[in-house]
Design a protein around this nucleic acid. Structure first.
Lengths: 251, 251
DNA sequence: TACTGTGAAAGACTTCACAGCC
DNA sequence: GGCTGTGAAGTCTTTCACAGTA
């Protein structure tokens, strides 16, 4: 999914498939919950259910990390938590800046899921002078003018953009120039970045649009039952219309 | 493919690939921007750049919808906007409820990207009685007690969950029981839903974790010249990165 | 000429199914 | 017996490359 990829020929390094990487946080979350309940071990079947995937996929995913399970028994919860955390790089501290402290930026600043996973909100930045100095989630908002200094002083390599679309590219360029090499973009626009910089995007309305697509199709199917209009090439019972997807889908 | 029809292009064309569906909103966004600038036509190359994908992929994607371009010329912007909107089901009105009006719920309620795409926030719902009646984004918050009535009165089929993780499954069940068949879940938990209900999830911290993974790897590459085994953290029981699994086989 | 539309090839990801180990 | 780890098969997605056409 559209991310500036820096592919090198991969000497003999750990080539974990991108799809697997995207699921590791899911497993980690499920494992953390088990850990909090002091569950010592878990089978691939149980963990898969908790993470919302199937067990074959989970085992395959884990096989890319190494052989961390015990046949006949399952996986040691604590050990797996550690291994996955390490693989994801969550055993280190990641200072993060959030640029654009509107509703969304404030929500992000308050979001508990960051701190609990090694991410530390090092600074909040906004272009509105009226916001400067005002605390959000206990952190004073700083003005965009100081962006470069903030990045450098805090050794920030991950930036979160929650500005309006119109400001995003410019903010992005300043972040990159100041040393940021990973960007999480909430602005509904495509960011152009140089090689070596990763961008991931979250667009709230895109997800809704995908839901609408499937929702519409459901409605269409109901109607098709009632009035079998044209025989659309077709066939088989409607049990499993091909696009109908399992409950939880990959992001 | 066999379907050479140019008329009445298959609303019901068998199976647009999921990957394509997920990109349609991206194209739509880029096209909308062009439309606002009164650009009449666009080539696959230009549009692809604006959407952040490559042109072959875009053309392939469009080929699933029908033949909406003109060889030697490109695509008519307005026409494509309409076709994609229709395909996504955005030409109809989708009343949506948001459950959980914390920071994130409020941000979503205020988010402009919904309204502009056929989504209408029909109601805001929260379990906190203190919030009841207070307007957020101009819409008064209603109490969870009335959830079922709200869903039914408004004919809502899409629900957005922005509650804490602990409340999400229960809210989900009530939504589904009341008739909701598509859910956008922001709570960091897996939702169990019956067949026929679609769930899409957005987990803000997952995206950051994926970035951290790549970020970590970048750092590793820089240092790769130095020492083969970074003495990062003690790999006590671990096999170590050396004698490791073959990871990925060269296909 | 310039660009779309699309088979066919390549690649990525998922699932199957079972060998191997506890 | 129960469960992991993994080749192999199957499916989905991307990319190539070029025929077709306004």
């Amino acid at each position: 999914m559209a991310t500036g990829r820096t592919h090198r020929p991969a000497t003999r390094s750990r080539g974990i498939p991108e799809a697997t990487v995207a699921r590791l946080p899911l497993y980690l979350r499920a494992l953390t919950a088990l850990s909090e309940r002091s569950v010592p071990t878990v089978s691939s079947e149980e963990l898969a259910a908790a993470a919302g995937v199937n067990s074959a996929k989970l085992r395959k995913d884990f096989s890319y990390l190494g052989s961390y399970g015990t046949r006949g028994v399952g996986y040691d919860v604590e050990y797996l938590v550690y291994q996955i955390s390490r693989e994801l790089g969550l055993t280190q501290d990641w200072p993060v800046v959030i640029v654009g402290i509107g509703n969304l930026g404030a929500a992000l600043a308050n979001y508990g899921g960051f701190a609990s996973r090694g991410f530390r909100v090092a600074a909040l930045i906004d272009a509105d002078p009226a916001l400067a100095g005002k605390p959000v989630a206990g952190i004073p908002v700083q003005h965009t003018d100081d962006l470069e200094k903030i990045i450098q002083d805090n050794g920030v390599s991950i930036g979160v953009i929650a500005t309006p679309a119109g400001a995003a590219q410019q903010v992005c360029e300043r972040l990159v120039a100041a040393g940021v090499t990973s960007i999480l973009n909430f602005a509904p626009t495509v960011l152009n970045v140089p090689e070596g910089v990763d961008v991931r995007k979250v667009d709230l309305s895109i997800e809704l649009q995908i839901l609408a697509f499937h929702e519409q199709r459901k409605a269409g199917e109901e109607a098709a039952d009632a009035v079998p209009a044209a025989a659309t090439s077709g066939d088989t019972t409607d049990q499993g219309p091909d696009g109908d997807v399992p409950a939880v889908m990959p992001a």
